[in-house]
Design a protein around this nucleic acid. Structure first.
Length: 287
DNA sequence: ATCTATTCCTGGCTGC
DNA sequence: TGCAGCCAGGAATAGA
């Protein structure tokens, strides 16, 4: 599933290619992909892509004329470029949106493709000011890689929520998903059900450091390819080889050898080491 | 403020 | 082997 490191890889891969290109045609094959957009994607037609960037797990494009485009890949979204010539119907079945780019025409024309088998991914298109004011974007918390240690430690204070749901809350911190939340808690040796307010400042600093380290390493490894995530060119990321807790139920903890346990937290699979991720003395409730 | 359940979807897996 | 049924899972939403 695309989380911050995966989205960052998509933006880094496509940004240089898309910058300066003009969108000459728009084709929406699945209404649901644009169902939340303030304006129809046709508004993109004729506009030039100025730059591609990332906010949390959103891919954002600044377009000429003060327009903006946002895209969330959710679980199975994939973005890539193909020549029209390479578009073979059978292999492209989960195709949801196609943006044709300027340059070559006809069968040599280059297309920006959005595929999404589960149809959870969404586009938003609007003038930039209106786009960033949309609740989906406006409610995002600080960037996981930009928040300072002091800010992060402070942000845990007084929070009654458990660490795992808190880390998944994009309004609290933007960018983490299920995989990196589990890996960060593992690296920081913190129990996913521990109450945030009961995390000591030292442990909170440890978590901040862990989040940064995990995300940076995952970006460098090209993200995690489990299931549906692949780079725009179709190649996989490799961070799945470095996962220590996520998805490893019953396997040995690389740190202490105990068996990794899987529990369900807010309807999400959650993996942790029951021996080296202990809740604080007064925080229990272990399933 | 915080939690739970529900919804959106479909590929992949389970069990018979 | 075939097929019905179940389930994951990011995030919005409604309700408690």
């Amino acid at each position: 599933m695309p989380e911050l490191p995966e989205v960052e890889n998509v933006v880094r891969a496509l940004g240089p290619f898309l910058a300066g290109r003009r969108i000459v045609a728009v084709q929406v094959l699945s209404r649901s992909a644009v169902s939340r957009s303030p304006e129809p994607l046709d508004a993109l037609k004729g506009r030039r892509i100025e730059r591609l960037w990332r906010r949390g797990k959103f891919i954002l494009a600044d377009l000429s004329g003060g327009y903006g485009l946002a895209l969330h890949l959710r679980m199975t979204g994939w973005l890539g470029v193909r020549r029209r010539l390479q578009l073979v119907s059978a292999g492209e079945s989960p195709l949801r949106v196609v943006l044709a780019l300027d340059g070559a025409t006809g069968p040599r024309q280059e297309l920006l493709l959005f595929r999404d088998s589960r149809k959870f991914g969404r586009f938003w298109c609007a003038p930039r000011a209106r786009l960033v004011a949309l609740p989906e974007l406006a409610r995002l918390g600080p960037e996981a890689l930009e928040i300072t240690r002091a800010e992060f430690v402070q942000s845990l204070r007084g929070r009654r929520r458990q660490l795992k749901p808190l880390l998944l809350d994009q309004a609290f911190l933007a960018g983490l998903g299920n995989i990196y939340a589990d890996e960060s808690l593992y690296a920081a040796r913190l129990h996913p059900l521990q109450q945030a307010a009961r995390v000591s400042p030292a442990a909170a600093a440890r978590l901040h450091r862990a989040i940064r380290r995990i995300l940076r390493r995952a970006i460098a490894a090209g993200g995690t390819s489990i299931g549906d995530y692949f780079h725009p060119d179709g190649s996989p990321g490799w961070f799945q080889l470095q996962l220590k807790a996520y998805g490893r139920e019953g396997q040995e903890c690389p740190r202490c050898g105990a068996r990794i346990r899987r529990i369900s937290v807010g309807q999400r699979g959650t993996w942790y080491c029951p021996r080296c991720q202990r809740a604080g003395r007064h925080a229990i409730t272990v399933v």
